[in-house]
């Protein structure tokens, strides 16, 4: 066991993938010489050369679209968009090309590409702060990873690069410096397998990335009051491991989703709808969501902190649910 940061885990996953497969290439704005604005690709160009790790113009449409083109011709491109928000900038390429090129050509192609999407608020305003994973979960043809720990980040990124399907890989910027244990001998985590981060019997919380950290903190406060929450980290949103949530909700009868995305039709809305469809007889409390209210994310910390779910809000909501 080693302890490394989430950022280092991502770097190692890229390094080992470049090493293992000659078809893996990495490109994006500033990922080459500079090692990426968040330094995730640091050292890779030096090690593998500029024909495998290289910089690109600020052209999100062609960054993503070329990934699809390279993938259909047999490469395994790993493309970085500097901000997950730019997923929308390259909407045609993400949703129609990456998500549907295989389908609309009747299965003639595989699209083994990875789009790395650093997400979460930065104070840089509404176009650089979102966690837009719900868009991806909503759209067919795309896989979606939301790793929360260094071990998951490394394992899921390697798995994503090996996948023959397009993967939208959300890395949360606030987690980059978070440290965690990693077992180099552990097998890769399969897609669609949630992790139970804490066991409890009163309320099920579904949360990932920064919200997972907050949920875990809230759980400690709640435990002092005798409220035992069960915390589920989905790890991938597509495929989505609903069974683990279902099993937990059968036990607790109550479910709260905490997400850093927008509330309306967010991931929580989907989970709530599925609970309605598949878990109704087990629900003993109103389903609840904590998410960003439906306003854009500001650039001033005080305004940002006002809208992102807090530990206190999680505590208060669970308290109310568990009453």
């Amino acid at each position: 066991m080693r302890t490394i940061t989430y950022a280092k885990a991502l770097n190692e996953a890229l390094d080992e993938s470049l090493q293992a497969d000659e078809d893996v290439i990495i490109y994006g704005c500033d990922v080459g010489r500079w090692g990426g604005i968040f330094k995730i690709t640091g050292g890779l160009q030096t090690k593998y050369g500029a024909d495998r790790v290289f910089d690109s113009p600020i052209s999100e449409n062609v960054l993503v679209g070329a990934g699809v083109g390279a993938a259909v011709m047999g490469l395994r491109p790993v493309v970085e968009l500097q901000f997950a928000d730019f997923l929308i900038t390259a909407g045609d390429e993400v949703f129609f090309k990456a998500g549907m090129w295989r389908f609309m050509h009747g299965g003639a192609f595989k699209v083994p590409m990875v789009l790395r999407l650093p997400s979460g608020e930065t104070g840089a305003g509404p176009e650089h702060s979102a966690c837009p994973e719900a868009y991806v979960m909503h759209s067919p043809g795309l896989l979606c990873c939301v790793p929360s720990t260094p071990a998951d980040a490394k394992s899921l990124l390697k798995q994503a690069i090996q996948s023959d399907n397009p993967v939208m890989f959300f890395e949360h910027r606030r987690l980059y410096q978070q440290r965690g244990e990693i077992d180099d001998d552990a097998p890769l985590i399969p897609f669609g397998k949630a992790a139970i981060r804490r066991e409890g019997r009163h309320v099920t919380i579904v949360a990932w990335q920064m919200m997972l950290n907050r949920a875990l903190k809230a759980a400690e406060t709640l435990a002092e009051e005798g409220i035992e929450v069960e915390i589920i980290d989905p790890r991938t949103l597509a495929p989505f491991d609903f069974d683990t949530i279902l099993t937990s909700v059968k036990k607790t009868g109550a479910c709260l989703v905490v997400e850093e995305g927008y509330r309306r039709l967010g991931v929580g809305a989907e989970i709530g709808a599925r609970l309605f469809e598949e878990a109704l007889p087990y629900l003993d409390r109103p389903f609840r969501r904590l998410a960003i209210p439906d306003v854009p994310i500001s650039s001033i910390p005080a305004l940002v902190n006002r809208i992102i779910p807090t530990v206190d809000q999680i505590v208060a909501t669970v308290r109310e649910m568990a009453a």
């Binding site: 009868g253 109704l280 007889p281 087990y282 629900l283 003993d284 409390r285 109103p286 009453a323």
Partner: peptide, 22 residues
């Protein structure tokens, strides 16, 4: 709650006679 209904049915309890604590 739906679960309360299910429990009421299995325990044969008339929900009309159940007081809510919430």
């Amino acid at each position: 709650s739906p679960k309360a209904r299910a429990v009421a049915q299995s325990l044969n309890v008339d929900l009309g006679q159940v007081a809510a604590h919430r």
